Amino acid sequence: MALVFRLCLLLMLISPALAVLCNPADKKALLQLKHDLNDPYLLASWSPDTDCCYWYTVKCDRKTHRIISLSILNSVPDTNFSSQIPPSIADLPYLQTLILHKLPNLTGPLPPAISKLTSLSYLTISWTNLSGPVPDSLARLQNLQFLDLSFNNLSGPIPGSLSLLPKLISLSLDRNKLTGPIPDSFGSFNSSPALFLSHNQLSGRIPPSLANQDPSRIELQRNRLEGDAYMLFGPNKTTQMVDLSRNLLSFDVGRVEFPASLISLDLNHNMIYGTLPQGLKAVDFLQMLNVSYNRMCGEIPQGGRLQRFDVSAYFHNKCLCGSPLPACKGLD
């Protein structure tokens, strides 16, 4: 019993030292950040009297105990979180993940301070009321793999400097108020990131340089893009999902070679003309197709997967015919 008592006493003496994991500089930075964000209830667990490695929304590295993740997600609509993103966000130099999601009272521009977080690999600031431009300075985040600035009120052009991010896997700028063209420099990405640029006010032609890219997904729907889209396709690409719907695109679909990897293709509500190419019926894994509301003509290729889609996938074209549409006159 005496030995057990001594062991318990020893553990009581050393446990406070073991419990304190959080780096003092990181803790100071987080407390300043909480203050700058007007002490929201969402961060009530951030108390000076407790170890910051155990605070809500915070994650420490298991070995270094430096703060590597900060994920503030508002699941309660009436939570008081009203502020701009403060410069103190940059005082967490080991941060690898930063998520600010569903914070409708988060306003103002994206601060230049974020570009100092050079360890970031995952940056999500979405479903807020941030406004102003997408800053060029984001190109300094050379370790970034995922950039998600969707569902905000960002405006102005897309900076071409984003193509300097060498490790980028996914770029989400959808559902903002961005204007101007897709940067020609996007053809020089090293990593062919998935592109989510839909629901903006982008205009002009899709840059031919995108022929050099092979992204897994391309979502450009609900913009004002014009002209051709041939560069997004090709027999040697491995793209799986393409949505170009509700733009002003006008090109001959008959000369497009679609990749065999396609799972989903949406071209509806454009001004695309020509005859659907025979090669499209050989796309074995196609699960979604919509070419409605265009100017296509001729017989839908028969004998492949294209008859698995109903009339709504093809209707409101100039003169498309053949199953599942009515038979082509004079071709029976």
Results as ranks from 00 to 15, higher is better:
289 L>G: 06
209 S>F: 05
326 P>N: 14
263 I>C: 01
196 F>V: 05
34 K>N: 12
93 P>Q: 11
142 Q>T: 15
162 L>P: 04
13 L>E: 08
146 F>W: 05
166 P>Y: 00
198 S>G: 12
103 L>A: 01
146 F>D: 00
267 L>F: 15
146 F>H: 08
194 A>K: 08
217 R>T: 12
261 S>P: 00
89 I>Y: 05
223 N>V: 04
67 I>S: 00
282 A>I: 03
153 N>P: 00
158 I>M: 06
90 A>C: 04
59 K>M: 13
299 E>G: 02
14 I>Y: 05
187 G>P: 10
152 N>M: 10
95 L>G: 00
314 Y>D: 02
130 L>Y: 10
184 D>I: 11
15 S>G: 01
172 S>R: 13
124 T>L: 11
3 L>M: 09
262 L>N: 03
223 N>R: 01
313 A>V: 08
273 Y>A: 08
175 R>N: 15
29 A>L: 08
127 W>K: 13
115 S>T: 05
284 D>G: 12
29 A>D: 03
215 P>F: 03
179 T>D: 02
26 D>T: 11
152 N>E: 07
41 Y>I: 09
171 L>D: 10
66 R>V: 10
89 I>F: 08
75 S>L: 14
201 Q>N: 08
222 R>A: 11
195 L>Y: 14
23 N>H: 14
224 R>G: 12
249 L>T: 07
138 L>W: 03
271 M>H: 15
25 A>T: 14
114 I>N: 02
95 L>T: 02
11 L>E: 05
126 S>N: 00
256 V>L: 01
175 R>H: 13
122 Y>N: 15
328 C>I: 13
257 E>A: 12
201 Q>I: 04
1 M>Q: 13
185 S>R: 11
93 P>N: 08
262 L>F: 01
61 D>F: 04
326 P>K: 15
283 V>W: 01
269 H>C: 12
296 M>Q: 11
260 A>C: 03
28 K>W: 03
83 S>L: 00
312 S>E: 13
134 V>R: 01
83 S>K: 05
259 P>Q: 08
15 S>T: 15
211 A>P: 02
78 D>G: 07
